[in-house]
Simulated assay, not measured.
Amino acid sequence: MNFASDNIVGASAPVLQAIVEANAGAMAAYGNDEISKRVRARFSELFEREVSVFFAATGTAANALALSSAVPPYGLCVCHREAHIIDDECGAPEFFMHGAKLVGLPGVGAKLKADEVAAYLSSLPKAVKQMPPKALSISQVSEGGLVYSPDELAALGQVCREHSMFFHMDGARFANALVALGCTPAEMTWKQGVDILSFGATKNGGLMAEAIVVFKPELSEALDYRSKRAGQIISKGRLIAAQFEGYFADDHWLANARHANRMAKLLSEGLLQLPGVRLAWPTEANEVFPILPQALNQRLKAAGVLYNSWTELSLPEGEQIAEDEALIRLVASWATQEEDVRRLLEIATSGVERQAAE
């Protein structure tokens, strides 16, 4: 039973089949093939407007290149202090921004609030000695498993406009957030002021399928060159693009995300039935963050359940992890089996009952 992440499982059958079909014969290289053209057009349909699309093999590459188009070497990119771009990408965004910096702000559940971002921006000196803020980046879903509502996104977008900043969304779990909100891709992005999006499919059924979706035309001007220099314009690019054809066909991507979210909800609801278990943050997408007794934590590990411990930095005010407790993260994926969820809950329940009997 592996709940360590949603990037530990392989690709889904429709995605793999699309790769097999795209593999046959010869096609133009470096993204000039008909499949890539069709997929770019499909993105424009999904987002209800003309967009520029640049394919990438990894989410790190997508984030780093997207931000490099928005932030000059002398600028700042504001994000949450636990954002993936600042905590998990080995400085790649700063490397590709050629010296620009990331600055992380606090926020419950790894989410940023518009008024707090605005207060920080207003506090910055306007002199040349201070690097000017040029972009805001958020993770949708956040690193605490929370989802920004359209209203929250709109408020952040307004802050960006007031401070002449670009608005970037790290959408590694874009589909999970989308089905949680029940809105359209347009309503979760450019209609709320998002200028550029890292669109992730790898965590939701892709093999290695990421895309930079650009809503602000001026940000796309140099991305072809930046992508080439970063090794992300792949000669057999049709095999990246084909994954999106399988991903989007028959709303496969949305079905995958709904399943993952449902498995997380089932897991979350089951754990909350156990004494001594509570959630650090609500389960809004496909991640669960329970606070549980250490004895239960050790029992799950001993039974072979795989998951990760988690940081306490973004806990709600007044919430604390006691010495005999642990905060963990459990992630459900498109491939998570309901029987695995129920088996984990059975192990947890029997462990609690055994401890009560002792």
Rank of each mutant, 00 (worst) to 15 (best):
F3E: 11
A4K: 14
I8V: 03
V9K: 13
G10R: 02
A11V: 06
P14G: 10
L16N: 10
Q17D: 12
N23T: 09
Y30W: 15
Y30C: 08
Y30K: 06
N32P: 00
R38P: 03
R42G: 04
E45Q: 14
L46A: 04
F47P: 02
E48S: 13
S52M: 05
F54Y: 14
F55N: 06
G59Q: 05
A61I: 02
A62F: 01
A64V: 06
A70F: 04
G75H: 02
L76K: 11
C77V: 15
H80G: 12
E82W: 05
A83Q: 03
H84D: 11
D87N: 14
D88R: 15
E89L: 11
E89A: 12
C90I: 07
P93N: 13
E94P: 00
E94H: 01
H98F: 12
L102I: 10
L102D: 10
V103Q: 05
L105I: 05
G107P: 00
V108C: 10
L112T: 11
K113E: 10
A114E: 02
D115M: 09
E116Y: 09
V117T: 02
A118H: 07
A118V: 00
A119K: 14
A119T: 06
S122A: 15
L124G: 11
K126E: 13
A127Y: 03
V128Y: 12
P133E: 10
K134E: 14
A135Y: 08
L136A: 10
L136Q: 05
I138L: 14
S142I: 09
E143I: 01
E143A: 14
G144K: 09
S149T: 15
E152D: 13
A155T: 02
G157Y: 04
G157A: 06
G157T: 06
Q158D: 12
Q158N: 12
V159G: 03
C160M: 07
F166G: 12
F167S: 02
G171V: 07
L178I: 00
V179Q: 00
A180M: 03
L181I: 09
C183T: 08
T184Y: 00
T189Y: 10
W190Y: 05
K191I: 01
Q192W: 07
G193L: 06
K203V: 00
L207A: 14
A211N: 03
I212S: 04
V214N: 08
E218G: 05
E221A: 15
L223M: 15
D224E: 13
R226T: 11
S227A: 15
K228A: 15
L239I: 09
I240C: 03
A241T: 01
E245I: 01
G246D: 01
A249V: 02
A249L: 03
D251H: 11
L254V: 09
N256W: 06
R262D: 12
L267V: 08
L267H: 11
E269K: 10
E269W: 02
G270M: 09
V277Y: 08
E284M: 12
E284G: 07
N286L: 03
E287C: 12
P290F: 01
I291T: 03
P293L: 03
K301D: 02
A302F: 10
L306M: 11
E312A: 01
L313S: 12
L315G: 08
P316F: 02
E317I: 06
A326L: 02
A326M: 11
L327N: 04
L327C: 07
T336E: 05
E338W: 00
E346K: 13
I347R: 08
I347M: 13
T349R: 15
S350W: 01
R354L: 14
R354Q: 15
Q355E: 15
A357N: 07
